[in-house]
Design a protein around this nucleic acid. Structure first.
Length: 473
DNA sequence: CGTCTTTGACCGGCGC
DNA sequence: GCGCCGGTCAAAGACG
């Protein structure tokens, strides 16, 4: 707490000069009583402190006493305010999560219905064409099969029969995004107009060798699209709701910390892999890189992460791909979680070996490492750092550093828990949270990625590892 | 005994 | 062609 400016302690002091709406004021009334007063409802908190201006020493003593009282009141008020804010954020987050999930289900069901209709109509068209062209139809069919194979390669689990839960995985979203883009084309390779909802590989299509090659290249890129999550954690792996089995470990060049390779074991044959590695520069930062799409329903806890990462991956590959390393201010964070005026806390990289999205959930590296195993100890973090692995991401924003605030609301990606800490450290913390939409957006996104853990009552340790130590990283 | 981790071997891509 | 490097495989061992 900063020492008070005595000159300001005349009649009214505002310890939160700036922006908070529900802050408390300390008032000295006409009888020299120090009153704690809430700006919103003008409630006298009852801390009447008799003051005197007759003797200088008394005045000085009283002043110190006032300062102490002010400090206590300040902390108490902040505690209450943060608690209220915490509750409000939790409620909002729950609502947003529910809405997002419902929308996702709705969208997938609509798409499935639409595709069924398209498949039926194009099946009829195909039969008609084959009847007309005889031999030519055979050639066409061969190309069609190529197209089908290529498509089947990317969406290793068909989007037709996957459950709505699956649509949250990164590559699924990308594939759908591709399909949407191709749908926007106006003609088929044969020069025929596309029927509504025309899909390149679901509906019959003549694919030239060139098209096929390009398609395969694009699809290979999609398959390799990655989402990287940087989080501060002392555990060997962050919990994301899925079950993983370690299948390898390597020392990668440029980082003395070993990189661990995991594959999803929630279903046999699930192609999803992830790499876990500590940041070379700051070993309290854990970098988790996801690749592939799940071939099985995801639990709610995993859905949250999948939603966040899929939105990120989708943004990377849909629309304009950055020609070089760059930052896109697009809504990586699912729309419902994005606050107005906020920018994404994500860095995109297209020049990496694979297109990579980095969600940075770390913050000031000078902050002490957190006790990973404390159930409520999180540090959430808007501070964006570059991607250490590919050395190509850029700083998106360091809004708090510009405000001179190094202390943030405690929050981090815990092994089993995620909870906004009920108490912030300083008034500046509270100010930063409310004032900066970027922080709130980051908070929401990060919480969303692990919110399911609390729902699971802590019984959702994603790893099946028996390791208790951090021996892999 | 089944499951999982560890770790050296192996493979493929890429640059020189 | 060769070496480097990232990624994966699979045998062996650990663990409950």
């Amino acid at each position: 707490m900063e020492p008070l400016d005595h000159k300001r302690v005349v009649n009214e002091m505002d310890f939160f000069a700036g922006d908070l709406s529900s802050r408390q004021h300390v008032k000295v009334d006409d009888d020299h009583h120090v009153l704690l007063q809430d700006q919103a409802d003008d409630v006298n908190t009852g801390l009447n402190l008799l003051t005197s201006n007759t003797a200088t020493e008394k005045s000085s003593r009283n002043l110190k006493e006032k300062q102490r009282v002010n400090q206590v009141a300040d902390v108490r008020a902040e505690l209450e305010r943060i608690n209220a804010e915490n509750q409000r954020l939790k409620l909002t987050l729950n609502q947003v999560n529910n809405n997002y999930y419902a929308l996702q289900m709705h969208l997938v069901s609509l798409m499935q219905r639409h595709r069924n209709r398209v498949a039926e109509s194009s099946e009829a068209n195909k039969t008609e064409m084959e009847d007309k062209t005889h031999g030519g139809g055979i050639v066409a069919r061969q190309f069609m099969d190529l197209g089908e194979a290529a498509k089947a390669e990317i969406s290793e689990s068909s989007s037709e029969d996957r459950s709505p839960e699956l649509s949250g995985s990164p590559t699924n979203t990308i594939v759908e995004s591709m399909e949407r883009r191709e749908k926007n084309s106006t003609t088929t390779p044969e020069g025929l107009p596309h029927p509504p909802g025309w899909l390149p590989s679901k509906a019959p299509k003549l694919i030239t060798a060139m098209d096929n090659e390009q398609a395969q290249q694009t699809m290979a890129m999609i398959r390799k699209a990655r989402v990287s999550v940087r989080a501060r954690s002392e555990a060997s792996m962050i919990s994301d709701g899925c079950q993983w089995r370690k299948y390898g470990q390597k020392i990668a060049k440029g980082n003395p910390c070993p990189r661990a390779y995991y594959r999803c074991t929630m279903a046999t044959g699930c192609p999803v892999r992830k790499q876990v590695q500590r940041c070379a520069e700051d070993r309290t930062i854990l970098i988790t890189t996801y690749e592939g799409n799940h071939s099985h329903p995801l639990p709610q806890a995993a859905m949250a992460m999948a939603s966040t990462t899929s939105a990120a991956a989708s943004t990377l590959l849909s629309g304009s791909m950055p020609s070089a390393d760059g930052i896109m201010n697009s809504s990586i964070i699912p729309k419902g979680m994005m606050l107005p005026g906020s920018t994404s806390l994500v860095t995109l990289s297209a020049s990496a070996p694979f297109p990579t999205v980095t969600l940075d959930l770390t913050h000031n590296p000078n902050q002490r490492p957190l006790n990973q195993f404390h159930p409520i100890s999180p540090h959430l973090p808007p501070h964006l750092l570059g991607h250490p692995i590919y050395n190509q991401s850029r700083l998106l924003g360091t809004f708090l550093s510009s405000q001179g605030n190094n202390e943030l609301i405690p929050g981090h990606l815990g092994q089993n828990y995620m909870q906004v800490h009920p108490m912030a450290n300083t008034a500046a913390t509270a100010t930063a949270i409310t004032a900066d939409p970027n922080f709130t957006a980051a908070l929401v996104a990060a919480i969303a990625s692990i919110v399911g853990h609390r729902d699971n009552n802590g019984n959702n340790n994603s790893t099946t590892s028996r390791n208790t130590g951090d021996n892999s990283t």
